[in-house]
Each structure stands twice: as structure tokens, then as C-alpha cells.
Amino acid sequence: MAAAAAAGAGPEMVRGQVFDVGPRYTNLSYIGEGAYGMVCSAYDNVNKVRVAIKKISPFEHQTYCQRTLREIKILLRFRHENIIGINDIIRAPTIEQMKDVYIVQDLMETDLYKLLKTQHLSNDHICYFLYQILRGLKYIHSANVLHRDLKPSNLLLNTTCDLKICDFGLARVADPDHDHTGFLTEYVATRWYRAPEIMLNSKGYTKSIDIWSVGCILAEMLSNRPIFPGKHYLDQLNHILGILGSPSQEDLNCIINLKARNYLLSLPHKNKVPWNRLFPNADSKALDLLDKMLTFNPHKRIEVEQALAHPYLEQYYDPSDEPIAEAPFKFDMELDDLPKEKLKELIFEETARFQPGYRS
């Protein structure tokens, strides 16, 4: 834990890192770190609560700039109880001085990944967590956004079992017609939660990839272990087919990539493993919904509104309290091709509203 900075004593240090967030945020305490930044909790002297502050230093890398800009653009436009918001952003007053960006968010005690390492969940908890994931996802999908990296560590939890989806750095506007060349190379989302079509096709992607990830998360809540822990690309596919069985001819016809289709045709026939054999203690309604989410063919996979209306979630289902976005989200430009200098300018502009004396 960093010592509390005395008023006016300059930035606090946390594990050798400068955290320049005073005077409003003090009493910093280390939480963890990701690929390009550290997260601390801090005391907000204005709202009198502890908050989470993520320090991001992305400006050396085009990919990190892209992810940072995506996350900020999306989260500043989203407003939903099951999606983490941005409360404040701290950065230098000029673009030349801006080396880091500090993002202030609600402090959540833990995440689903940490929880599943230590606790076996009751059916009631599984049901409530799944409902909140789908409630947040309904809003995301209504904005025409794909999260693309749903996994237990991106689901934040607090002691009252509130759940918030975080990390929109890989999110995209849904565009089933656009052929994202190089899709697989830039697709760094965790393999275990990846839909089979991501490994088999490169053309376009749809909201059904997020539903697949939610199915993987439900299976993990039922058993405290990942359902498809593939060691590499082909191993991942083999794990999936080992449980779902061989795809039907109709399902194979959806695979545009001939090499991928021929690979699947070359494999020995596998039978589907019954879900109640894998999860003998699970609620039968939970397994019915799991089956509809972990469907090989993305066109037959359940959609988020149908999933919310499934009998497993009937005690929570309330369409009048499951809000959607006001308007579909649009990125003005494809960020993939922009140089990091341009992305830095866009991050600077996007964060201006939090600067003292800002006038829109």
C-alpha cells in the first residue's frame, strides 16, 4: 500500500510507478496490472468513496492506442447498470505532455475469474450472474457493438453480487458484411471463450460470437473449470467437437473457408456428449439454455433477447427493466489503419471533457 500523499506533496508512487492523480484522489492501494497499465484503488475526496484507477501508458504502440481509444469512446457513450462506466479521466493539459491516461471507475471487490478459483456457486448465484451478463449484453448488442472478449476476468463483482462487464478494448461495431482481413492475426481474445466460426472463417462476425462466450462462462460457473481449455488453435476446435459432436452437413455448409471445411470433413465422426453427463448436478433449465448458447452453427445460436426470456431466468426476466441503447454506435473511421500519432490526438480530444474549465 502506498503511503497517503500529504496535501501538495506531488504524485504518489505505487510499486515504483508514478500515479499522478492528486489532489482529488489519494490513499492509493495496488490492485493489479494488465498488459499496459496498473490498477489501484484510491480515495475520492470529492465523492467520499474509494474508486478504481487504471493507469494506461499506450502511446508507444499502435495496438494499445487503438484499444484505449475504443474503450474510452464506447464506455463514455454507454450507460447501463451492468456495464462499468467511466467516472473521470485524468491526463496532462497538453498533448505533448500526455504520456499516461488515468481512467477512474467504480471500485468492484472482485471478478468472476477470482471468485470461481475459490468458491463453488449455488444455482441461485449462477442464475443471477447469468441474468446480469445477458442484461448488459442486450444493451451492448442493441448499440450494434460486439464485445468480443467476454470471459470471467472481464466480469466485475461486488459483495452485493452486482455484476458489471468491463474491458471493451477489443470491441467492434457489428459488421457481418465487412471482410476484416487479418482478423485472426489481430484477434487476441482469450482462445477458450472463442466461437468456432472465428477459427473457421475470417469473413465478418456477428453478435452470436458473444453468446458463445457467455455459454462458455455459464459452463464454467457450473463446474469451476473452463469447458474448452484448448492449448492452441486446432486443439481448441477438437475440444469443442469432442463435446458438441461432429457438425451436420448443414452446419458445414455455413463454413465459407474450404480449407477449414475440408479439415472438419477429414475428422472421424464424434457423438455429442449429453450435458447432464458433463454437469450431473446442474439445473435442467440451465443445461437447456447452455445447449442453445453453445450451438456450433452461429445462425442457430440463441440471441440475447431470447436467452433473457428463457425459463431458467424467469424469476428475473423483465423486458421493461432491460434497457437498450438510445442509438446504434458508430465509429467515424476504422481505427485499425491509423498511425499511433493520430490515435493519440483522438484520445486527447475524447478525454477533453474531463479537463478543468472544459467548454463543449
Rank of each mutant, 00 (worst) to 15 (best):
G169N: 13
G136R: 12
R67D: 11
L267S: 04
M199F: 10
K231A: 07
V101Y: 10
H310S: 02
N45R: 01
A42E: 13
I211R: 08
L287Y: 08
A309S: 15
Q97G: 04
D251A: 12
T110A: 13
L335I: 05
P298N: 05
D124N: 15
T159C: 09
E220S: 03
A42C: 07
K99E: 05
L278C: 08
E109D: 15
A2D: 11
G10L: 10
A52R: 07
T68K: 11
C127M: 12
F183Q: 04
M333F: 07
G34F: 03
I198N: 14
V39L: 12
S153W: 06
S223W: 10
Y43K: 11
K203Q: 13
L222K: 04
E314I: 00
S142G: 03
H147K: 08
L184E: 09
A352C: 07
E350P: 00
L184N: 08
I140T: 00
E220P: 02
K330F: 02
A307E: 00
N201F: 09
F59Q: 10
Y317A: 08
E220L: 08
D210A: 13
D337Q: 04
G357H: 05
K151E: 10
L150F: 07
H299S: 05
Q66A: 11
A174R: 11
T185A: 11
Y25E: 02
L278R: 08
T68V: 06
M98Q: 01
H178V: 08
A309R: 02
Y193A: 06
E326G: 02
G37T: 15
A286H: 03
H147I: 09
Y187L: 05
E33R: 07
K292S: 06
N158E: 09
H299F: 03
V21W: 08
L112N: 01
A282Y: 07
L258I: 06
L222V: 06
T295I: 09
G8V: 15
P58N: 15
L146P: 00
C65T: 08
V145C: 05
E81T: 05
K48E: 13
E303W: 04
G32H: 00
M221K: 14
N201K: 15
R148Y: 08
R135G: 02
A189M: 06
V39Q: 03
G357M: 09
A327W: 07
Q315I: 03
F183K: 09
K259A: 05
G230M: 06
D337K: 04
H178M: 08
E250G: 00
S122F: 06
H239S: 05
A7S: 13
L134K: 09
V39P: 07
M38H: 12
V173A: 02
L289F: 04
E250M: 03
R91E: 03
Q132G: 04
A143C: 10
R24V: 07
Q17G: 03
I324P: 02
M13N: 11
T26I: 15
G8M: 01
E81M: 01
M199H: 12
R277M: 09
L116A: 04
M221A: 04
I209K: 11
K340W: 02
H80N: 13
P152V: 01
P176Y: 05
D251M: 00
R148L: 14
R225Q: 03
V18D: 15
L290W: 08
S122R: 14
H80D: 06
P298M: 03
D177L: 09
K117Y: 04
L338H: 05
A286Q: 06
D44F: 13
C254D: 07
D124P: 08
E220V: 13
D283Y: 14
D332W: 05
L343N: 12
L156W: 03
I243T: 02
W275M: 10
P268L: 12
Q62A: 09
L338F: 07
C127G: 11
L222S: 01
L222W: 03
D283A: 13
L289I: 06
Y316R: 03
A35I: 03
C254Q: 05
G169Q: 04
A6M: 13
R79L: 14
G32L: 00
K73W: 10
R148T: 04
A5C: 04
Q62T: 13
A171I: 06
R225F: 07
T181S: 15
L264A: 08
T159G: 04
V273Q: 03
G169L: 04
A92I: 04
N281E: 09
I198R: 08
R15A: 05
A174H: 06
I83Y: 01
S41Y: 15
E60S: 14
L155E: 03
N238R: 02
Y312C: 00
D124W: 02
A189Q: 12
P274S: 12
N297E: 05
